[in-house]
């Protein structure tokens, strides 16, 4: 007699999903990397009272050592410090631009999806028009209109990256709009605005937030590309793109560290963000009882 309290040790069932431990490892590593990155860019500049611009021509282009773990650049500035400052700027631009792009994209997508008809057609043709121009070209066009600085880069990234979010949000809203629960809300006297704000938008927000997170690396790469082309941040300001750009010459001379470390700092957080976003997406599907088959 198997009573609930006296149930014997039950046999575990085969786990048919991909190996659980590698999945945990991936998420854990991603989380650790992101925590380290965020802590570094938040804490290092105020705590370490060092000048990242400090020039020391006597120590120029030194390979990595205990004193300078990332080495020094062609005017003897410590690359670890400059990379942290660069990462800070790139991350800031990435996060702000991704947020702005998500806001624009969600608003446009939600309006197009919720109102439909002509509004939808005009807005989506606008999205198509923007999409038909290569991102980088459009981005260059935007930054070229302003002086170099952080905000033109943010605007450039935001203006080129809201399109995919708008499409995601619109299609999500269209699929939600045909659900019986929207019918029920209308029948319950809900206004058009209430349906949009209380029932449709909350349904797409997780998707939009996920898109925003995945957009942060995109925005960072876009910023780096602009800076690498000399169109982004002012050359003296450390950003990952600027660091790679200014080290191009030394790479040809065989000095690998001034390009490698900024490059790695671009790639590693990208992978970490992708790892976290992937885990989040897996959990996004609302856990229903039916999945437990109860």
């Amino acid at each position: 007699m198997a009573d609930i309290r006296s149930i014997r040790a039950v046999r575990p069932v085969r786990d048919i999903r991909p190996n659980r431990s590698t999945r945990t490892l991936r998420v854990g590593a991603s989380a650790a990397v992101m925590a380290a990155v965020v802590l570094a860019v938040l804490l290092v500049p105020p705590l370490v009272q060092l000048d990242e611009q400090a020039v020391d021509l006597a120590r120029k282009l030194q390979p990595p050592s205990w004193q300078h773990p990332f080495g020094t650049d062609d005017v003897g500035r410590d690359l670890l410090l400059r990379c942290v400052y660069g990462l800070r700027v790139s991350l800031l631009v990435g996060v702000v631009a991704a947020l702005a792009a998500t806001l624009i994209g969600t608003a446009v997508g939600a309006i197009a999806g919720a109102f439909g008809g002509w509004t939808d057609r005009v807005l989506m043709r606008l999205v198509d028009t923007f999409s038909s121009v290569p991102h980088l070209l459009l981005g260059i066009f935007v930054v070229a209109m302003f002086r170099p600085g952080v905000w033109p880069v943010v605007v450039s990234v935001a203006l080129t990256h809201w399109l995919s979010t708008a499409r995601i949000v619109r299609s999500e809203i269209l699929s939600l709009r045909s659900r019986p629960y929207i019918d029920a809300a209308i029948s319950g006297g809900a206004s058009r605005r209430r349906v949009a704000v209380r029932h449709l938008l909350p349904g797409v927000l997780p998707q939009a937030a996920l898109a925003a997170v995945l957009m942060v690396p995109h925005a960072m790469w876009h910023e780096s590309a602009l800076s690498f082309l000399g169109l982004g941040l002012p050359a003296h300001q450390a950003s990952l793109g600027n660091l790679v750009q200014s080290a191009r010459g030394s790479l040809l001379a065989g000095d690998w560290w001034p390009t490698l470390f900024p490059g790695l700092l671009l790639i590693v957080p990208t992978l970490a963000i992708a790892g976290l976003a992937g885990a989040w997406r897996d959990r996004l599907a609302p856990r229903r009882r039916s999945e437990l088959m109860l």
Binding site: R8, V10, R11, V13, L292
Partner: peptide
């Protein structure tokens, strides 16, 4: 619990299930 029983017979239970 009837669908759970069926799934147990087909070996289609999720990983957080235990059998006896």
């Amino acid at each position: 619990g009837k669908s759970v029983l069926a799934s147990a017979l087909l070996g289609l239970l999720p990983a957080n299930a235990g059998l006896d």
